[in-house]
Design a binder for these strands. Structure first.
Length: 501
RNA sequence: GGCGCGUUCGUCUAGUGGUCUAGGACGCCGCCCUCUCAAGGCGGAGAUCACGGGUUCGACCCCCGUACGCGCUACCA
């Protein structure tokens, strides 16, 4: 551990605390991942806590969705809503009485107070401050001046109220951050933050501090957007007399234009990337490297290697653009490193997903055909180096699954000469003589034909590829012939000669 | 506006005072391999280290300022 932050003798306990807004954001994934890696690396606990304190933002099924995305990425949590371990409940909406109790304690100590101001008065106040061009707009502590009897009367009458933090101005608030080092604020710039809202729910700041303390969180690893409100949290810890966790504020993930990563400029949900066919290993690997590196040149990581190498001290302090190009590359790398049997499983899934029932029109074209594992293994070894996504086995080499019906026009113009049909015919007849031909047999037959015809190999191999696959690019010709098999090859040559007259 | 954080090739980054005429990766370009396309190998273009001042024998690295970017500035998280 970094000497500046002391050794923590207690167990490492970290949490990912998203608000359930519908899906897992890739920025959230990165935050969750760093928490997870840090916990695993230090034999600590990784906790999932749901910060559902805004009733207006409640989204049906959001929690389930979040958990599903987290689990898909391999981020198993030790404690969470469906994994109670004595520190729950892990849904803040189920801990309301706790927040109330602690707010009460703060009020009694004079560190918080009831506020009965209406939204209207607050609005007017804000406008007045704007007109006066005050350096910072803050609540004017109007209700702090209320007498005890006034407060009791208002409370008894059931009038709407909130609880606010009582911030004393002109105080230095200093805290250490593993990533930012020393950060200093002046309490004059800190507003009397609402702790308990009118509806009885806590605000983030209140719930966060109370829960982190109660759940014995040792390190708060979260996005940089929280740095500015950390002084409020520090104040709260001090007012309660609680030990503060160690803070680590992560740099933000950015759009290509360097603004905060947003939906407008592309996909931000983990499920979007999953749907697009990205491997979880690739997403995790890529996102881990956005703001962190081990200090060497290693870029390809599996989860266990990330756990092994990860440290908060090596997290960067500046935002990182989410670069799709690099994600594509790392996805291809992970895909190529997979074993053929793993790829077989993925390929079969992909073929299944393109069944006609998926109503995606032509995607269903492969469904009726049945392919043996042996055949698919051959396709895999032929295409492995040529695909970046599993689906590309189907889109880049559909000819392994269905005979071509159309032929690439450019290639046709380039290689399909008037004498081609006759030459292919000769080749076809040569192939017909073969029994159970191996890849080498196809090659020998082709070379013989070429010699007999007294032409170059290229003269016939390109039209052959076109005839057999409909395309000009693909695996080695002899591999292609062997995989398709003699009968299919002959059928396709005949069909091409017929169609390309 | 106020407060805070940041700023090394287009992008992700290495770099903790001399080894930096700044290294790697993605992307881009070229060559090799070759029946095509990939993969792979080799090479190239690409960063006056945001700018300006200091400190120092010496600064990407330390200090100050400026600019720019981002975040926060809610009874949202």
């Amino acid at each position: 551990m970094h000497q500046n932050f002391g050794d923590f003798v207690n167990e490492v306990r970290v949490r990912f605390a998203p608000s359930p807004t519908g899906y897992l954001h890739v920025g959230g994934l990165r935050t969750a991942l760093y928490n997870f890696l840090f916990a695993r690396k230090n034999n600590g606990k990784f906790i999932l806590r749901i910060e559902d304190t805004d009733r207006n933002r409640y989204v049906e099924g959001a929690v389930e969705n979040l958990i599903a995305s987290l689990k898909w990425c391999g981020l198993e949590y030790d404690e969470g809503p469906d994994r109670e371990c004595g520190f729950g409940p892990y849904m803040q909406s189920q801990r309301l009485d706790l927040y109330k109790k602690y707010a009460q304690e703060l009020i009694e100590k004079g560190h918080a107070y009831y506020c009965f101001c209406t939204p209207e008065r607050l609005q007017v106040l804000k406008e007045e401050q704007a007109v006066q061009k005050l350096p910072q707009a803050k609540y004017d502590k109007h209700c702090f001046a209320l007498s005890k009897t006034e407060i009791d009367e208002k409370l008894a009458s059931g009038i709407a109220h909130v609880v606010r933090l009582n911030v004393i101005p002109n105080q230095k608030i200093v805290f250490n951050d593993i990533i930012r080092n020393r950060v200093e604020f002046d309490s004059s710039n800190v507003d009397d933050q609402v702790l308990i809202k009118g509806d009885g729910y806590p605000t983030y700041h209140m719930a966060n501090v109370v829960d982190d303390h109660l759940m014995k969180i040792s390190h708060v690893i979260r996005g940089e957007e929280w740095l500015s409100s950390t002084p409020k949290h520090v104040l709260l810890y001090d007012f309660f007399g609680w030990e503060k966790p160690i803070f680590a504020h992560l740099p933000l993930l950015l759009n290509p234009d360097r603004s905060k990563l947003s939906k407008r400029q592309g996909d931000v949900a983990v499920e979007d990337y999953r749907a697009k066919g990205f491997l979880k290993e690739a997403l995790v690997n890529f996102v881990a490297l956005l703001g962190w590196n081990a200090g060497d040149d290693k870029e390809f990581y599996y989860m266990n290697e990330l756990i092994e190498s990860f440290s908060l001290e090596r997290v960067n302090n500046s935002g990182a653009v989410f670069d799709l190009e690099k994600l594509n590359w790392i996805n291809a790398e992970h895909l190529r490193k997979k074993s053929d049997s793993d790829l077989l499983i993925l390929l079969k899934e992909e073929i299944l997903n393109s069944s006609p029932r998926s109503t995606q029109g032509e995607a269903g074209q492969f469904s009726i055909l049945n392919f043996t594992d042996e055949y698919l293994f051959q396709v895999i070894s032929a295409m492995k180096e040529r695909v970046s996504f599993v689906k590309e086995y189907l889109t880049k080499s559909p000819y392994f699954f269905v005979a071509p019906t159309e032929y690439e026009e450019a290639s046709k113009l380039k290689s399909w000469k008037p004498e081609t049909p006759e030459q292919l015919k000769a080749l076809r007849n040569k192939f017909a003589e073969l029994t159970n031909p191996s890849k080498e047999d196809f090659e020998t037959a082709l070379k013989q034909t070429v010699a007999d015809l007294n032409i170059g190999v290229g003269k016939i191999i390109h039209p052959l590829r076109l005839a057999v696959s409909g395309q000009s690019a693909g695996p080695g010709m002899y591999d292609l012939l062997f995989i398709l098999g003699k009968d299919e090859v002959i059928r396709r040559i005949d069909a091409a000669i017929d169609k390309l007259k």
